[in-house]
Simulated scan of single mutants.
Amino acid sequence: MAPPKPNSPANGSGFLASVLRFWNRTYASDYIGLAILLASYLVIQFFVEPFHRLFSLNDLRISFPYAEVERVPLTHDFGYALFIPLLLVFVTNLICSASPHKHHVTILGFAIALVLTSFLTDVIKNAVGRPRPDLLSRCAALPGTPVDKLVDISVCTETGHHKLHDGWRSFPSGHSSFSFAGLGYLSLFLAGQTRIFAHGPGSIAEHTEKLVRGDLLKALFCLGPLVGATMIAISRCQDYRHDVYDVTIGSLLGWTVAYWSYRRYWPRLSSVRCNEPYAGPPGVTDGPGYGRLRDEEEGAGGRNVGHELRELNSR
């Protein structure tokens, strides 16, 4: 974040100037945005019902049985995609003797990825109102309901509010998007810390021994979280909660948000400094930090080797 200009209101005195200085020198905007996203997500969860598409009792696509016991319940999904990645990134930073700034942006980026993914997933779910593959089992339609005509939710006899209305929240898969957001962020973080992509023609790795070329074992280690997220997504098809289309789009949504959130705080994985976050606002960064560069300045072109060597030597 660039410091305020000499004639900026942040350089003045008074309450407004103090607020502007605080805003420019902290992560206040990130935390306010995160709080708004979290509050919006909770409002959607507790007060918004999905759009209810019409359906037909002879539609085989929504005729699958309702699984009373899920392979990956929601609580387990939180454990796999939230608590385990959170523990692993924290332990990794401890092992690497990370600075407080590095700890901070690692957790902040992770939290934003999960909350933003959950918010977007629920907004889309409620707007689309796509029936789940097990909708007819949830609905338990009234006897005598026409089987060859489109009907609405009024023919359902299920009294459980969540069980019934959740039947119209099939697209996209929330388990899939959440798991790819959390485990996808973990995979990106591990890839940055192990520098498995920080090499190539003309890169700093060809001119110094301070970087170690990534090997297959490291790559598989970083790929592991994505394999886990994929298995969680597949389980949703096995439980007939979603079809392949739902879990594919949900997975892409979670991965996209995870990458977007990661890159707000970290350089590209091919950068020589991929294991260090960008410098934060002047009021929170410890040390000189790593200023954000354009992608072409982080690239592998030989013209940047001298610049990268100077950065390493200055550490």
Score class of each variant (00 low, 15 high):
residue 1 M to V: 12
residue 1 M to H: 06
residue 4 P to V: 01
residue 9 P to G: 08
residue 15 F to Y: 12
residue 16 L to Y: 12
residue 17 A to W: 02
residue 21 R to D: 03
residue 23 W to D: 03
residue 23 W to F: 01
residue 23 W to A: 01
residue 24 N to C: 01
residue 25 R to K: 10
residue 28 A to L: 04
residue 31 Y to V: 15
residue 32 I to D: 01
residue 33 G to D: 01
residue 39 A to T: 13
residue 42 L to P: 15
residue 43 V to E: 12
residue 43 V to A: 14
residue 45 Q to K: 11
residue 47 F to L: 15
residue 49 E to M: 02
residue 66 Y to I: 15
residue 66 Y to H: 12
residue 66 Y to F: 14
residue 69 V to C: 05
residue 75 T to C: 01
residue 83 F to H: 06
residue 84 I to C: 13
residue 84 I to W: 14
residue 88 L to P: 00
residue 93 N to A: 06
residue 95 I to F: 15
residue 95 I to M: 14
residue 98 A to C: 12
residue 98 A to K: 04
residue 99 S to A: 13
residue 101 H to N: 11
residue 104 H to V: 10
residue 104 H to S: 11
residue 106 T to H: 15
residue 107 I to E: 15
residue 108 L to T: 10
residue 109 G to I: 03
residue 110 F to V: 03
residue 110 F to Q: 08
residue 111 A to E: 15
residue 114 L to W: 03
residue 114 L to D: 12
residue 116 L to K: 08
residue 119 F to S: 02
residue 119 F to K: 07
residue 123 V to F: 08
residue 129 G to A: 10
residue 133 P to G: 08
residue 134 D to K: 07
residue 134 D to M: 05
residue 135 L to V: 09
residue 137 S to D: 06
residue 138 R to P: 02
residue 146 P to F: 06
residue 148 D to M: 07
residue 152 D to M: 02
residue 152 D to H: 01
residue 155 V to Y: 03
residue 157 T to D: 02
residue 157 T to W: 00
residue 159 T to C: 10
residue 161 H to W: 07
residue 166 D to R: 06
residue 167 G to T: 14
residue 167 G to I: 14
residue 170 S to E: 12
residue 174 G to V: 02
residue 179 S to G: 07
residue 183 L to C: 08
residue 184 G to V: 08
residue 186 L to P: 02
residue 190 L to T: 05
residue 191 A to Y: 07
residue 191 A to S: 15
residue 192 G to I: 09
residue 197 F to A: 09
residue 198 A to C: 11
residue 200 G to T: 04
residue 203 S to R: 11
residue 206 E to I: 03
residue 212 V to F: 10
residue 212 V to L: 04
residue 215 D to M: 07
residue 216 L to K: 13
residue 217 L to K: 13
residue 217 L to S: 09
residue 221 F to I: 12
residue 223 L to F: 12
residue 225 P to S: 10
residue 226 L to S: 09
residue 227 V to Q: 10
residue 229 A to I: 01
residue 232 I to E: 02
residue 233 A to Y: 09
residue 234 I to T: 07
residue 236 R to G: 12
residue 238 Q to N: 08
residue 240 Y to S: 12
residue 241 R to Y: 05
residue 244 V to L: 15
residue 247 V to A: 14
residue 250 G to Q: 04
residue 250 G to A: 01
residue 254 G to D: 13
residue 255 W to L: 15
residue 256 T to K: 08
residue 260 W to T: 11
residue 261 S to M: 14
residue 263 R to N: 08
residue 264 R to F: 11
residue 265 Y to K: 01
residue 265 Y to T: 00
residue 266 W to C: 02
residue 266 W to D: 04
residue 268 R to C: 03
residue 270 S to Y: 15
residue 272 V to R: 02
residue 272 V to H: 05
residue 273 R to C: 04
residue 276 E to P: 12
residue 277 P to K: 00
residue 278 Y to N: 01
residue 279 A to I: 01
residue 279 A to L: 09
residue 280 G to T: 07
residue 282 P to N: 07
residue 283 G to W: 00
residue 284 V to N: 05
residue 287 G to T: 06
residue 290 Y to D: 14
residue 292 R to S: 01
residue 293 L to M: 09
residue 294 R to P: 09
residue 294 R to H: 09
residue 298 E to R: 00
residue 298 E to D: 06
residue 303 R to M: 00
residue 303 R to T: 00
residue 304 N to Q: 02
residue 308 E to R: 02
residue 308 E to D: 15
residue 310 R to T: 04
residue 311 E to Y: 09
residue 312 L to N: 04
residue 315 R to V: 11
